[in-house]
């Protein structure tokens, strides 16, 4: 099975690889894994005034999983929380032209986005994390 050009591009030049400090203000962390294949994905967002100003990821897994999370961070930047909620795994499948056997990689990326958003919301909702 051959990877699409876009997957290869993201794999060779991953965007936004790295991480933020978890307890940094405005940072939401999503950590997800696929027990079937053992892929691990960490996706983080940095939020200011309800807008995602930066996003980073670290993925240990196949090329499609890396490409899916790399693309996800690109899409997240500049989006509001509400817009980010709407990113669907099918959007990722379409953009990267993922074959059926690799659809679970895009699901993982969507789960990671959701997890990061909910972590951010949990942090901002709890009073001690407010910091101001």
């Amino acid at each position: 099975m051959a990877y699409s050009d876009k997957v290869v591009d993201h794999f060779n030049n991953p965007r936004n690889m790295g991480s933020f400090k978890k307890d940094e203000e405005g940072v939401g962390t999503g950590m997800v894994g696929a027990p079937e294949c053992g892929d691990v994905m960490k996706l983080q967002i940095k939020v200011q005034n309800d807008t995602i100003v930066d996003a980073k990821f670290k993925t240990f897994g196949c090329g499609s999983a890396i490409a899916s999370s790399s693309l996800a961070t690109e899409w997240l930047k500049g989006k509001t929380i509400e817009e980010a909620q709407k990113i669907k795994n099918t959007d990722i499948v379409q953009e990267l032209n993922l074959p059926p056997v690799k659809i679970h990689c895009s699901v993982l990326a969507e789960d990671a986005i959701k997890a990061a958003l909910s972590d951010y919301q949990k942090k901002t909702d709890s009073p001690q994390a407010d910091g101001k």
Binding site: M31, V32, G33, P35, V40, K42, K58, F60
Partner: peptide
Amino acid sequence: IRTSPPADLFEEILELQD
């Protein structure tokens, strides 16, 4: 039957990967 991912193990794995 599926439970939440083991965050500590994941951190460890990603760090090792680095």
